[in-house]
Design a protein around this nucleic acid. Structure first.
Length: 398
RNA sequence: CGGAGUGUAGCGCAGUUGGUAGCGCGCUUCGUUUGGGACGAAGAGGUCCCCGGUUCAAAUCCGGGCACUCCGACCA
């Protein structure tokens, strides 16, 4: 991609009211734009990052048998009345009426919709288990949108739902998803903890949250040295002083919901013994847009963002000071790299400034000073070195 | 919803005692530059958040709205 054509241009200054790092940097670098409080456009580079995050999630969820689909966002009131959540989740739901006074909700989650689907399609234990998911928008009437893209009123979520013939099977799958989530956040490169927490409007039972350690986090978690799991402050029992604690950002959450939803919505199946039983149910969420914001919070410096190879919008930033990098650009593209080529007629300083701001992990500088070599520099390091193009390509392939 | 703050050019801001709006960046054109956001010259760009009031006169004073940000209560 030629940078001269990239939409939009970077900004020199952050929005004046922006406080959080993700808000300032993602807006300045041209990854997102605010429409109103808690509502964001993902601009081309922001969308690329989210797509990369989604792909990592997709691969790991598919690996535990998840089947991707897509559910609607406009839901009838009647279905939410079946579980009582039209009233119970009143504060978080956006509700609206059409011209005939029929009432709807904008989706804040999909348990009821999935359960409706299951009761229409599952009749025997032979039809179970089922694991289905989608990536879609969630609407939540947050009392206060804040922290850039970390808490929006409209955001992207991957939500997975699983249905089982027994509690044992549900819990076995729950553990599978827990380890799939661990793989996802490990691949994404986060320092995270799995924390025991409460279920909010989803369930009275325990749940597990995936928490990335960061000072801008809204949660506080506690653990003891050597513990694999932590505990969210909201369900913390015992003496806090005996634990290590840290602020954290919740990037994922898994819920073993049990049979509450299936009983309320009469989603039964016929078991091996001929008896009619409620479906065992679980749901599992990750917020990819929040993941993007969280990454920026934990990986930046005073000049800009520092993306990882896994989720960077481009593989290489080709900073062309001569204006004659067309051939090298072509060769890098041919080799299979996704390259942002700074072909603009602006000063070197501006190119370097934008390069640091955008934060692509590898920068290749073309300049007369370098002769026929390219200057290879990693965004996360200070030093650079001169390499032949072939050497640079070899290094990039690793 | 409680507390605090802000709203003036695309962005960041200044605007004194009420007298009809300016600075920096960005943008356009021309020229000079080209390794860390360069320089000169000439331009374009305004519903001073909205509505009402006071006044000869309102960005400025008064009343009422709206929006955004931060803190708190609630949550991927």
């Amino acid at each position: 991609m030629k940078q001269s054509q990239l939409f939009p241009k970077t900004k020199k200054e952050a929005p004046k009211d922006a406080e959080s790092i993700n808000h300032k940097l993602l807006v300045r670098a041209g990854f997102m734009d605010q429409l109103m409080a808690g509502s964001w456009t993902l601009l081309p580079m922001g969308f690329k990052v989210v797509q990369k995050i989604n792909q990592i999630i997709r691969e790991e969820i598919n690996a535990v048998g998840g089947q991707e689909m897509l559910m609607p966002l406009l839901h009838p009131k009647t279905i939410w009345n079946e579980t009582g959540r039209w009233d119970k989740a009143n504060e978080i739901m956006y509700k609206l009426k059409d011209s005939r006074e029929k009432e709807y909700a904008l989706s804040f989650t999909h348990e009821e919709i999935v359960m409706d689907l299951l009761r229409k399609t599952i009749s025997s234990y032979k039809d179970l288990p089922v694991s289905i998911y989608h990536f879609s928008t969630k609407f939540r009437n947050e009392l206060r949108a804040k922290s850039g893209i970390l808490r929006g009123r409209e955001f992207m979520m991957k939500d997975l739902y699983s249905a089982h013939a027994s509690e044992e099977d549900l819990m076995e799958y729950y553990e599978k998803v827990k380890s799939a989530y661990s793989k996802i956040f490990t691949r994404l490169g986060f320092n995270f903890k799995i924390a025991k927490a409460s279920g909010g409007v989803f369930t009275d039972k325990f749940t597990h949250e995936f928490q990335v350690l960061s000072d801008v986090g809204e949660d506080t978690i506690y653990w003891k040295e050597g513990d694999t799991e932590a505990t969210n402050e909201e369900v913390m029992e015992g003496n806090k002083e005996e634990y290590i604690s840290a602020k954290s950002i919740e990037v994922g959450n898994i819920f073993p919901l049990g049979t509450f939803y299936s009983e309320r919505m009469r989603a039964y199946f016929t078991d091996r013994d001929g008896g009619k039983k409620p479906i065992w149910f679980g749901s599992y969420g990750i917020g990819p847009t929040r993941v993007m914001g969280t990454w920026v919070e934990v990986s930046h410096d005073d000049k800009g963002i520092i993306w990882s190879k896994q989720i960077s919008p481009f593989d290489i930033h080709l900073v062309d000071l001569n204006g004659n990098g067309k051939e090298i650009y072509g060769k890098l593209i041919e080799t299979g790299f996704d390259v942002l080529w700074d072909d603009r007629e602006v000063s070197a300083g501006e190119k370097f400034g934008d390069s640091d701001l955008i934060g692509i992990p590898v920068r290749l500088v073309l300049s007369e000073r370098n002769g026929d070599k390219v200057e290879y520099k990693e965004r996360s390091k200070d030093e650079s070195e001169l390499l032949s193009l072939d050497e640079a390509i070899e290094r990039l392939k690793k």
